[in-house]
Nucleic acid binder design. Sequence first.
DNA 1: CACGGCCATGACATCGCGTGTCATCAGGGT
DNA 2: ACCCTGATGACACGCGATGTCATGGCCGTG
Lengths: 221, 221
Amino acid sequence: MSRWRPDARERLERAALELFAEQGFAATTVPQITARAGLTTRTFFRHYADKREVLFAGEHELPELARRMIAEAPPAADPLGLIVGALRTVADTWFEGRRDEVRRRREIVRSDPGLGERELRKRAGICEAISAGFRERGVPAMTAALLAETGVTLLHVSIQQWLDQDGDRPLGHFAEEALAALRAVLHVPDPAVTATGMSAAATLTGGSTVRSGRPRERPRA
Amino acid sequence: MSRWRPDARERLERAALELFAEQGFAATTVPQITARAGLTTRTFFRHYADKREVLFAGEHELPELARRMIAEAPPAADPLGLIVGALRTVADTWFEGRRDEVRRRREIVRSDPGLGERELRKRAGICEAISAGFRERGVPAMTAALLAETGVTLLHVSIQQWLDQDGDRPLGHFAEEALAALRAVLHVPDPAVTATGMSAAATLTGGSTVRSGRPRERPRA
DNA sequence: CACGGCCATGACATCGCGTGTCATCAGGGT
DNA sequence: ACCCTGATGACACGCGATGTCATGGCCGTG
C-alpha cells in the first residue's frame, strides 16, 4: 500500500463535495475534482459512471436492501404494515439526526437540473425494488406497484415537510401525518362532487389547442 | 419562405425518431439527425436543450395545463374528484387510441437510462404543477403534494398495465382499478401487524454494513 | 419602393464529459 | 523467482453542448 493512497473514493467524494459547495456543480469540472484529490480524470470515471454519480455514492445498495426488507418479512404481515414499518425504520436509522446534512445535500441537488434527474432515477430504482419485493410475496403487480409508489411518495413528501419546518419534529411524525392525510383524502364517496370535477376538467381541456407554440432558445443555467 | 424550409422542428423530430428506431438512441449522433433533416448541428440545439429533449417535445405545456385544470375548477369540487376527473380526461384525450405509438415510445425510452431520467423529470414537473394548482385553491401543502403524487402515480401505474395487457381494455378501466386497489390497500387498521413489519425491517437493517462495496467499471450502453 | 431592424439559420471555434487502450507497478499466490 | 490480478497513470479521441459572428429572407415603417 505504498504506491497509491488507499482511500481514492473517499478523497474524490470529499473533494467533489467541497468544490460543489464552493463554486456550484456545473462550474466544477472533473479535472478540478481529481486534481484536489491527487488523482487523474480517468480514475474518476473508473469509480463513478458520470460526474453526478459522485453525489449519490453509498446509496447503491438501497434498492436491494429495500427489496429484501419487503420480500423477507413474515408472510402474515399485511402490505401496508410493511410499508409503515419500513418507513419508520428508514426515518429512524437513515435520516433522523442528519437533518442539516440532508438539507445541504438538497440544496446542491436543487441547484442543478441534472442532479434532480439523477435523484429521481434513484427514487424510481428503490420504488421498483420495493415493488419487486411485494411481487415476490405474491402481491399482484398493480397492487405491488401502487404500494411501492405510495411508500416512496409518503417518505418523500414527509421529508420535504421535515426539512422545511422551523421546529424539530422528528421525521416519523411527518410520515404519520402524511399517511393520515392520504387516507383522509382518498375516502370520498361523493359522486355528485366528483361529477363536477370531471366536467370542469373536460371544459378546460376540450377547447384548448394542445399542440402549439415553440420554445425559443432555452435559458440555460 | 424560400431560403429555409419552414418545418425545421418537424423534420428534426421525424429524423430523430427514425434514427433512434433504426440504430438506437445512444448510437445516434446529433450530426446524423441534422444531416437527415437538412440542417446543422447548431440549429438542433437552438430548438432542443439536449439530444434527449427531441423525444419530449410537445409535452412542454402539460404542467401549465394541469395546474389550470386543478386551480380553475369549481371551488366546491372535492380534491379527489378533481384527480379522478383529470385522470379520465387525460386518459380519453391524450392516450386512448394511441396505444401502439405510446408502446413504441416506451421502448425507446426504456432502452436508454438517460431518457428514463428525462421522463421522470417530466413527470415530476407535472406533479409539481398539480400540487401548485391545489395550493392555489387553499389546500395545505402536504395534502396538495400527496394528491399530486397520487394522481401521477395512478396514471403511471395504470398506463403500464394498459400497455402490457393482451386485450384492449381502455386505459380508464385500469385507472379505476388502480384507484380501487389503492383504496383497498390503505383501508387497513393499524394493529400490531405494523410492529411485525417494523421488527422485520429493523432486523434487516440493524446488522448490515450500510456503506461498502464499489461498482467496477460500469457497463454502459 | 427603399431602408433597416428582426430573426432563423449557417459556419466556426471551443470546452468538458465520457471512453478505449496500453503501460506501469504494487501485492499475493504458486 | 514467477506470474497473475487489480488499481492507477498517460494519452488519444469522439461527441455533446455553447458562444460568437456572418448571412440573408421577412416585415414594418416612412
